[in-house]
Nucleic acid binder design. Structure first.
Lengths: 158, 158
DNA sequence: ATTGAAACAATTACCCG
DNA sequence: CGGGTAATTGTTTCAAT
């Protein structure tokens, strides 16, 4: 059975969620521990796969990705699901793909350059096996966009 | 007028999108440049705010955030929009908030512990000024979830 | 953009509770 | 087993070209 996380682990993770390049000596200062101790905790947290990864996030506007959209897709026949997902994984402008309850079988989050590239992408998606219908909601403004989890408690993550 | 990015900057950014803690000497090796040159490029890329930040991403399942949902909200009266967004920003379980075209005025991406916490969160949201109606799609499985942009070309990002 | 030296940070080995 | 200290190794920054 794995060990539970204590408040120090939580502090480290909370900080790394905000600053993924934070140095170990800074973390050590925050949690009042020595640098090797922090390193050891980080190593364990990574080893347990509690941290999926560290990523730089770019400002999409500055790279001319002017359009964000949520696209609901109806894929019929769950036989087609796997292939659909595989096809989607090869579309780098599709940032997210989830299967969902309710209308539509999947929702995609898309980030693309302009209406033209959106149109092309949508027509590629519509050509995938089993895709019947798509419904798009284009984003006008984004007010919040994070992956940060509000971890607080010292739960035992499996 | 800002300078355009060259292929080396693009390579650095592509790599940092995949490994946000990548060390400068490793980047230097990849792009066949000296470490100080890479450092200087990173400094400039950060200074120009092309990089929004570096973040550790946690495995939400392992922290008992078992539910992801997309929630469409109809906020009526654009007077209420600002206040709505402010309220939403205080809800850490709401990871994203965008205003959108089509039905509903806003879409939220939510990550929460269980159906009970989802219910509580939804009822808080429904109590915000101007919120008429919400529609939720709960995620069954996530097949892709990234913020990585497929930057390829050496566009001039403003 | 590079080099080489100085400053700084991370890792290792070892000891202690 | 988890944390501290000191020495080693590795990384980043700075000055000069």
């Amino acid at each position: 059975m794995a060990h539970s996380l204590d408040e120090i682990d939580i502090k480290i993770l909370k900080h790394l969620q905000k600053d993924g390049r934070s140095q170990r000596n800074k973390l050590a200062e925050i949690v009042h521990l020595s640098v090797p101790s922090v390193s050891e905790r980080m190593r364990k947290l990574e080893e347990k796969d509690l941290i999926k990864g560290y990523y730089a996030v770019l400002d999409s506007k500055r790279f001319n990705f002017d359009i964000t959209a949520f696209v609901f897709v109806e894929v019929d026949g769950s036989d087609n699901y796997k292939k659909f997902v595989d096809n989607i994984k090869n579309e780098p402008e599709v940032l997210e793909c989830h299967s969902i309850t309710g209308d539509g079988s999947h929702v995609l989050k898309i980030r693309t350059e302009n209406t033209e590239s959106l149109e092309k992408l949508l027509s590629r998606i519509q050509s995938f096996d089993g895709v019947h219908k798509t419904r798009s909601n284009v984003v006008l403004s984004s007010f919040k966009e994070t992956q940060e989890l509000p971890i607080e408690k010292t739960i035992d993550p499996k």
